[in-house]
Write a protein that binds this DNA or RNA. Structure first.
Lengths: 333, 333
DNA sequence: AGAAATCTTTACAACGATTGACATGGAGTT
DNA sequence: AACTCCATGTCAATCGTTGTAAAGATTTCT
């Protein structure tokens, strides 16, 4: 099984160096020689040994993607997109589930996969304070998710404040006056930033701000959304609309509303954030902020590879992912 | 950045080999020496270089998981479970999206990631005929998904025939008589095997078999389920129940039913297969066959690692994943 | 006490690919 | 005929770690 460079060389009747030259696109090679070598490679089904190459070159063409959990649809879709974007460039993505803080930190600081990977795309969930440590990492790193003021790292994210403002404003525009927010306690700044946009929209519309309508849960799963919605329905004066800080929360909320026999959007309108596929097929289909995930993936990978290849000190870059507000049944006018 | 074994050795005042011995739990080492070395490792924050180690040992402690697409909830959940199971054993999982046949084949036969990975867990989608080639692969391989008769590879799968029989029988037991099947054209034998269980159940109950109720679509996504359901509703005599060969199809079907203003399970009962999280929170919640994914993950990883460590020729093993039928709202009695 | 057995530690080579310095032999120029 | 440019080859070193075997140290046994 161990087809080696020297096997190829022997079969092609050339030296090892020549084969290596062919593989690494060394300029001065006859078409004839190149053909011979390529034929031999083909015939022997040769693949360079990644370990050896990476050991020698210090480059592996592997990057890591650190996300909280890949079972979560948004991250699954993101991971898929990033994998694809990387594959296009001949890069392999290693997906790491950080689950919580500990593991994530461990990944970034400890070891970095024993120097195998060339860089990392990191979507932190609970690592605001460790930001500085992050900056001290040995390998290039691109950060996804909410923007940390004063960060020193390359960054790709949606303008969550603006998007949340848009989502809330949309609810206002369809006549809602008591608009709740679910997910305010969300990690990595998400809760804070999205609440900011939410409050801003209320203020801009001259609506009162009722703290009871801001659900401080930290979880971002369906069950958390369902629970928060139950709390809201138990209020003396329940809301007529809910802006959920991600789609899973919204789907959970919809479930609670259905259980309560309330109509959506009749009694309560719902808007989410992320545009995961589930929401599109749900009934009612879920209105949501739809970040361009392909764009995000392309650019995150691009940024990272730039940095990896990077010779000089390029200034830190900060990209804003385009998004649209998808108005679907859950908030139809 | 490059803290090497030799750096540690120098600091600890021992030879490189001794450090290596400590790291690899070589038995004969003085407590004193071990302490010195460990202190040095700690102080220098040393992590072994994966490439070098893998080059030397021929083992990397990386395995690959080849799945059609990780954006698909079932595979996302499976991938998460397998990653976790592997991590517990100190193994890292590399996820490969095969998307279709071409890439999947390429992965398995070509290169195998340049000998980096120690083995592969493969969930084929369109590779029935290439089975033989698979067997010829250099590295240990565990197959997931429908059982191929006469296979020579280790295998972990649900008994789809039985499960489908159970699902269909359940629909019959709640009084349904015109039961459709969606996903009959599904790849990798899935469609065939599940249809077998479906037909068997009809036969066992003495129900007629109507070919018009077997929807031959090959896709397994929500949109395919939605489209198939539309076809069914267009029939002169639509079904009163549908068994969908996976949950995504079922969710798509539910969407179509909702659009048509039909009640579930009142007018049409629906059962899926996979038990993805979406189904549990959908309204109505989705009845489904629930394979024990943790069990599957544990055992697939276990089998593969056995094989990798394996000295002698162990006989081929074939494990059957336990499952339960989860009866939820979409088929409540 | 002296020899044998055992334990600890070390030196060296090898894993496979790449690279740099340098040599070689032709083809083409002037 | 001297010179340059090209295509390839030779040789050796390197990346960091570990297996083999052997040297050095210590204990055990007679």
């Amino acid at each position: 099984m161990a087809t080696r460079l020297s096997d190829v060389a022997a079969r092609a009747g050339v030296s090892v160096k020549t084969v290596s030259n062919v593989i690494n696109d060394y300029p001065h090679i006859t078409a004839h020689t190149r053909a011979k070598v390529e034929a031999a490679i083909e015939a022997l089904d040769y693949t360079p040994n990644v370990s050896a190459r990476s050991l020698r070159k210090g480059r592996s063409d592997f990057i890591a993607l650190a996300i909280p959990e890949m079972g979560s649809p948004y991250f699954a879709e993101l991971g898929a997109a990033i994998s694809r974007a990387a594959k296009k460039r001949g890069i392999t993505v290693l997906i790491d589930q950080t689950e919580g803080e500990a593991a994530g930190e461990k990944l970034v600081l400890d070891g970095m996969r024993g120097q195998l990977i060339d860089g990392i795309i990191f979507s932190p969930i609970t690592t605001s304070p460790a930001k500085i440590d992050l900056a001290a990492t040995a390998k290039p790193l691109v950060l996804l998710g909410e923007r940390h003021a004063g960060g020193t790292l390359d960054h790709v994210a949606v303008d969550s404040v603006q998007a949340s403002f848009d989502a809330t404003t949309h609810l206002i525009s369809i006549g809602r006056r008591r608009i709740a927010a679910i997910g305010v306690g969300g990690g990595a700044g998400t809760g804070v930033v999205r609440r900011k946009g939410y409050r801003k929209a209320l203020k801009a519309a001259g609506l009162p701000h009722d703290p009871a309508l801001e659900l401080a849960g930290t979880g971002y799963h369906r069950e958390d959304g369902a629970a928060s919605m139950r709390e809201l329905l138990a209020l003396p004066e329940p809301p007529d609309a809910v802006f959920c800080f991600n789609d899973l929360l919204a789907l959970g909320a919809l479930r609670t509303l259905a259980d309560a026999g309330l109509s959506v959007p009749g009694d309560v309108a719902v808007v989410g954030f992320d545009d995961i596929e589930d929401g599109r097929y749900h009934s009612p289909s879920l209105s949501t902020i739809s970040p361009d995930k392909e764009w995000l993936a392309e650019n995150a990978v691009g940024l990272l590879l730039d940095r990896i290849a990077g010779t000089g000190e390029v200034a830190r870059r900060d990209l804003t992912v385009p998004y649209t507000l998808q108005i679907r049944e859950s908030s139809a006018g």
